[in-house]
Design a protein around this nucleic acid. Structure first.
Length: 799
RNA sequence: GCCGUUAUGGCGGAACAGGCAGACGCAAGGGACUUAAAAUCCCUCGAUCGAAAGAUCAUGUCGGUUCGAGCCCGACUAACGGCACCA
């Protein structure tokens, strides 16, 4: 009998062996093919590692170990995305410096990750809060700034009047402050933006060349929100003369149905033509009200349209010459299109609602709906009516023709627009990268010279937010007051810091040469490692991190710093691990699972096996404490295979080639659950037979090694005179052995399974029928029709 | 409202490309071993009828295509995720 498997000793032994011998530390090696596997680096929260992390990391871990066995030079790095609010808040509460908190958390994470036996290259650990790292984050910002892609602009921020602090969007969900529950108000402030909109088209195009799950592509496409339409110019008659008001529309075909125009309350028309407006007081009251209205309200009041008619001015329809009234209403946004729309109530539900409320005419210009009941959008059908120049045309043709007419007359042009907004790139917080800009009264915004980077965070005593919506850094006068690098005169530093998404937008580049101090990435290292071959992470990052980092990489490509426009070749996404109650894990629900507990009770291999076996990798799965036991049993049975070893075994006819193919393919296809299931089936077969050979076990161990590396390393060593499993090659199957010479096919009668017959491979229909006759399945029946799929099935239609 | 995803036993989930529904695991029941328990091993395990052989029903609902549908088509329902007064 085999010695009982002592996971504690064995796991410790192999972890020491791997880490002490630096087995996973890699260098560029031109003789080997490279594989760069990446997991989203964790935020080192005080709570430590979560089972969600285990699921997220274990996929690439399996691939990394498999690729190593296949002879690849594998880069599988880890680091920490350590700037951010939770640490800062925790630091404030406990009156410790965030640096201390961060370092402590990182140490904890590293020890937890090592206990799981992950094959990370520990020589490349990066930390976004390390000045040697954020020096380069700041450097990238400066490149963006120098090319006009970073700019400061006035906008509204979420402000909690109780805590007196600017809140990030994620801290003010539903218009309520996360910490005190007070209603958040909008406060005007100058903030930095990155012109990600300039990259809309490139980010869309790039999706064509990457291997991402379709739903990720669709989500990014929707986020970018490309629409093709037209900009049309309506003349607005004012006391100062005609004001050319440009509206954006995707439906220029409906121009004959325009019965009013609507401008956003922030539209410059209103500010520039006050003297023409006869109900100015009313307009200004409405503007003031719209300003204080929170984003949240705007959305939830969607059905109850508000607005005011702008008296004293009117617009002229450029096609018909008709006079039409101008309104201002907050259902028109200043930051999309031109902030002004032509309203066609007959064919747009929002305009319809507004027209009903204000008693405005509704003119049908596309037949096919009943516009007295609701708007008829007619996206796919309908023909134009009441539209002299385009009557009778289907919608699509009408759009094209009308754009042509407008372009010819100089009153409009086709125009592509995007919903994606520029990236608001600052926070009024301490624990982030300082923005390396100096404000000089004479020279304006001056970049910190690159040789002065990193611009270090000053070591503040009090890093709590200020109550005037400015950053904590503004309190540090020694740091704020500086001299202008251009004119040498007195100047002040930018006091806002970068958002959390900054450091994570380029970290995959840093891993290639984490200690390079002359560039963000060493060109030789980049030349070798290039793109990330496979990147796994959460769906929640698809429209933030995943799009931001694609943007930065694309920018770096455009300025010649990197050689590939897309950073990630392939992306996969793990599903959420839910609590055993089927609900999202949370401390308040008390349904969380600490991976440390599982490692202590069952061992790292069991945890790894279970998290991969739990279900479809890409779908959410509830944690089941009993399920872990099954995986523990499985691994135990693998260990005990040593008791079944015989020298010669003529009945050991397990089809290993089929198993190798199945398991290997499943790993690559993110189907870890079925890969493990097939290994279990093979094991059951061996146990039923009662004997096995060392060579058979070795194959199984190699297949299982990426999932359960400790146990398989130990058993391999034991059975192979001290041999090391990592020196082996991942098994290769012989395609010729995947097919046998006979095949069992089902016999259906009238579509229902009635019997099974075993016939030689590639038998003809007649041979199959002969076999069925022999079995006496057709007595008293007349065969009307035979459907025969060679080697698959035979179905008989009988009477 | 728009976009997307999903729906299979008591549970998690399998089913390659329209061809044996329920692999694998859990739970449950029965048995062996044990003084006993744990561990381990063996058997049963979708529902209904039947002593059995077997038959019928069954992949969210209702229709359709097909020799054959969990899978394809049409119309729904529910849950989850994303976006949202986007012109």
């Amino acid at each position: 009998m085999a010695k009982e498997y002592d996971f504690k000793t064995v796991e410790k032994k192999w972890q020491n062996y791997w880490y002490d011998n630096k087995l996973f530390e890699v260098k560029e090696d031109a003789d080997k093919p490279k594989f760069y596997g990446l997991i989203e680096f964790p935020y080192p929260s005080g709570a430590g590692l979560h089972v969600g992390h285990i699921r997220a990391f274990s996929s690439i871990e399996v691939i990394a170990r498999k690729k190593r066995l296949e002879g690849f030079n594998v880069l599988f790095p880890i680091g920490f995305d350590a700037f951010g609010l939770p640490t800062e808040n925790f630091a404030m509460q406990t009156k410790q410096h965030p640096r201390i908190v961060t370092d402590r958390n990182i140490i904890k994470f590293i020890s937890q990750l090592k206990k799981v036996g992950y094959s990370f290259d520990w020589s490349r650990v990066i930390d976004t809060t390390d000045p040697d790292y954020y020096r380069w984050t700041q450097w990238i910002f400066l490149q963006l700034f120098k090319r006009g892609l970073a700019y400061k602009s006035n906008t509204f921020v979420n402000f909690c009047p109780v805590c007196k602090v600017v809140l990030a969007n994620e801290e003010s969900q539903n218009g309520v402050c996360d910490r005190c529950g007070a209603e958040v108000i909008q406060k005007e402030k100058d903030v930095w933006f990155l012109k990600i909109r300039d990259y809309s088209e490139k980010l869309l195009e790039g999706l064509n060349e990457v291997d991402f799950p379709e739903k990720i592509k669709v989500e990014q496409q929707n986020w970018i929100g490309r629409s093709t339409g037209a900009e049309l110019i309506f003349k607005v008659r004012t006391k100062k003369g005609d004001y050319p008001l440009t509206v954006y529309t995707t439906r220029p075909d409906t121009i004959y149905g325009v019965t009013f125009l609507v401008v956003s309350p922030e539209h410059p028309l209103l500010a520039e033509h006050k003297e023409s407006i006869t109900n100015l007081a009313e307009i200004e009251a409405y503007q003031a009200q719209a300003k204080t209205k929170r984003e949240f309200d705007r959305v939830h009041m969607a059905k109850d349209k508000t607005g005011v008619k702008v008296e004293g001015i009117y617009a002229v329809n450029p096609i018909t010459g008709t006079r039409i009234p101008v309104f201002t209403a907050d259902y028109v946004m200043m930051d999309y299109g031109t902030g002004a729309i032509m309203a066609v109530p007959a064919h747009d539900q929002r305009d319809w609602d507004f027209a009903k409320k204000f008693g405005l005419p509704i003119i049908e210009v596309i037949s096919g709906g009943d516009v007295t009941v609701e708007a008829y959008a007619a996206k796919d059908g309908g023909t134009m009516v009441n539209s002299p120049l385009i009557n009778g045309l289907p919608v699509k043709e009408a759009i094209a023709k009308m754009i042509g007419i407008m372009e010819a007359r100089g009153i409009g042009k086709s125009k592509v627009d995007y919903k994606m907004k520029d990236w608001a790139f600052n926070r009024q917080r301490y624990w982030g990268e300082p923005i390396p800009i100096i404000n000089c009264p004479k020279c304006g915004q001056v970049p910190v010279p690159e040789d002065q980077l990193p611009l270090r965070l000053p070591d503040l005593e009090d890093f709590s937010p200020s109550d005037d919506a400015s950053s904590p850094l503004s309190k540090c006068k020694d740091w704020v007051n500086t001299t202008c690098p251009v004119c040498g005169g007195p100047a002040t530093r930018e006091t806002d810091t970068m958002p959390q998404w900054a450091g994570s937008s380029w970290y995959f580049l840093r891993y290639m040469s984490p200690h390079c101090d002359t560039a963000i990435v060493d060109p030789q290292a980049y030349k070798y490692w290039g793109q990330v071959d496979w990147y796994n992470g959460g769906m929640e990052h698809v429209t933030r991190h995943l799009i931001y980092s694609r943007f930065w990489n694309r920018f770096l490509y455009d300025i010649g710093v990197v050689g590939y426009p897309e950073p990630y070749k392939r992306r996969s996404a793990q599903g959420l691990i839910l609590g055993s109650d089927g609900e999202k894990m949370s401390k308040s629900r008390g349904n969380t699972v600490n991976p440390d507990d599982i490692v202590d009770t069952y061992g790292a291999d069991v945890l790894r096996t279970y998290i991969l076996f739990i279900g479809d990798y890409e779908k959410p799965a509830p944690w089941n404490p009993d399920g872990i036991k099954g995986c523990a049993r499985f691994l135990n049975r693998v260990w005990n295979l040593q008791d079944l070893v015989v020298e010669d075994c003529n009945t050991c006819d397990l089809n290993l080639d089929a198993l190798i193919k199945k398991v290997g393919d499943d790993y690559e296809n993110v189907k870890f659950n079925t890969a493990i299931a097939y290994l279990m089936t093979a094991l059951n077969t061996i146990y039923a037979r009662g004997k096995t050979t060392i060579s058979e076990i070795n194959t199984l161990l190699l297949l299982l090694n990426p999932v359960a590396p400790h146990l398989t390393s130990e058993l391999f060593e034991l059975l192979n005179k001290g041999g090391k499993i990592e020196k082996q090659r991942f098994p290769v199957y012989d395609p010729a052995k995947l097919v046998s010479d006979t095949v069992e096919i089902p016999v259906q009668i009238m579509g229902k399974l009635r019997a099974k017959i075993t016939i030689p491979l590639n038998s003809t229909q007649d041979e199959a029928m002969a076999e069925i006759e022999k079995a006496g399945l057709l007595e008293g029946k007349t065969v009307l029709k035979v459907v025969f799929v060679p080697n698959k099935i035979i179905n008989l239609v009988v009477r």
